[in-house]
C-alpha cells in the first residue's frame, strides 16, 4: 500500500497525537502540581482532590490519574496500530500488531491450554498496562505501579477470576478443596487462598517501589559526592552535580526498564498459572456431562 490518501494520513497523525497527548498532559500536571524539591524526596502519590463518599472520602491521586492517562494513550495507540488493517496485509504496523497478537495468543495457549484461549486479550492488556505504567518513570512521572492500591486492585480482580474458575466445578467441590489433603489443613488453606492476591500485589509494587527508592538514594548520594569533590570551585561549577550525569541512568536501565517489564510478565504469568491451575477440569467435565444428560432426558420425556 504505497499510495496513502490524504485522509488516511491525517487520521494517522491525529491518532499519534491523541496517543501522545495523555503523556504530555501527565507531565504538565506533574510540573504544575509538584514543585521541584531540594534533597531526597521519597513521597507517596500526590493527592489532587478528594471526593466526598458515603463511607469514606475517596482521594483522587496521581497514581489513578496517571493510570487513566496510560489507558487512554494505549487505546489510541492500539487504534493507530490497527488503522488501515486489511486481509492482504501490506502496512508495516500491521505486521507488528499481528506479531504481538500471535505472541500473546501462543503464550496464553502454552500456559493455560485450549479452554482458556479467550484469556489472551486480558493477559495482553495486563502486560501492556503494567509495562507502560512502570515505564512512566522514564518521563519523570510517578509510576502507578509503585502505589500499592493500584496493584491491589488488579490482584483482587485476578482473585475474583481465580475463585470464579474454581467454582466452575460446583460449590461442593470448591469447599472440599479447602480440606485437602487432610481436614486439619483447612485454616492454612484458607490463609494461602488470601495470600495469593497479597503476594502478587506486594511482589509487583515492592519491586517498582524499591527501584525508585534506591534510585533516589543513589542520586542524592552522588550529589553529595560531587559537592565534596567540586565544592571548592567557585560559582556555578561548585554546585554542578558532576557524578549525577550518566551514572543513575545505568541503574535506571535495570530498575525501571528491566524490572518493570519483568514484573509485568511475572504478574501476567502468575495470573495465567493461578487461573488455569485452580480450574478443576475433571469435575467440570463431569458436571457438564450430567447437565447434558439431564437436558436429553427432559427432551425425551417431553
Amino acid at each position: 500500500m504505497k499510495d496513502k490518501s490524504i485522509g488516511f494520513r491525517i487520521a494517522d497523525a491525529a491518532l499519534i497525537i491523541l496517543s501522545v497527548i495523555p503523556i504530555a498532559a501527565a507531565i504538565a500536571l506533574r510540573i504544575l502540581t509538584n514543585p521541584a524539591a531540594e534533597g531526597i524526596q521519597i513521597a507517596g502519590a500526590h493527592i489532587f482532590f478528594t471526593v466526598k463518599m458515603p463511607l469514606q472520602d475517596m482521594p483522587i491521586t496521581e497514581s489513578q490519574v496517571n493510570s487513566w492517562l496510560v489507558v487512554i494513550a494505549l487505546f489510541f495507540f492500539c487504534l493507530y496500530m490497527t488503522h488501515g488493517i486489511s486481509e492482504k496485509g501490506g502496512l508495516r504496523r500491521q505486521m507488528i500488531a499481528e506479531w504481538i497478537v500471535e505472541q500473546t495468543d501462543s503464550l496464553v495457549q502454552k500456559n493455560m491450554g485450549q479452554y482458556f484461549k479467550a484469556f489472551s486479550p486480558f493477559v495482553g492488556g495486563i502486560i501492556a498496562l503494567s509495562v507502560c505504567s512502570s515505564l512512566l518513570t522514564l518521563f519523570g512521572l510517578y509510576p502507578p505501579t509503585s502505589d500499592l492500591n493500584v496493584i491491589a486492585g488488579w490482584a483482587i480482580l485476578v482473585f475474583v477470576l481465580i475463585t470464579h474458575y474454581k467454582l466452575k466445578g460446583g460449590l461442593l467441590c470448591y469447599l472440599k478443596g479447602f480440606t485437602e489433603p487432610i481436614p486439619v489443613f483447612t485454616p492454612f488453606n484458607i490463609i494461602s487462598e488470601f495470600a495469593t492476591p497479597v503476594s502478587m500485589s506486594f511482589r509487583h509494587y515492592g519491586n517498582v517501589l524499591s527501584g525508585s527508592v534506591i534510585s533516589a538514594l543513589v542520586a542524592a548520594g552522588l550529589t553529595s559526592v560531587s559537592s565534596v569533590v567540586l565544592g571548592w570551585l567557585p560559582g556555578v561549577i561548585g554546585n554542578f552535580p558532576l557524578f549525577r550525569v550518566g551514572i543513575p541512568a545505568v541503574l535506571s536501565l535495570y530498575f525501571d526498564i528491566f524490572s518493570g517489564c519483568l514484573q509485568a510478565f511475572i504478574f501476567a504469568m502468575l495470573t495465567m498459572l493461578y487461573v488455569s491451575g485452580g480450574f478443576p477440569v475433571e469435575e467440570w467435565q463431569k458436571r457438564m456431562k450430567r447437565k447434558k444428560d439431564k437436558k436429553q432426558k427432559n427432551i425425551k420425556s417431553a
Partner: peptide, 18 residues
C-alpha cells in the same frame, strides 16, 4: 520466574522496612 517468586519473602521484608 522462579527467581521472581523466591524474591517475594525479601520483598515482604522490604515493604515492612519501608
Amino acid at each position: 520466574m522462579g527467581c521472581a517468586i523466591a524474591e517475594t519473602t525479601g520483598l515482604y521484608a522490604l515493604v515492612i522496612a519501608i
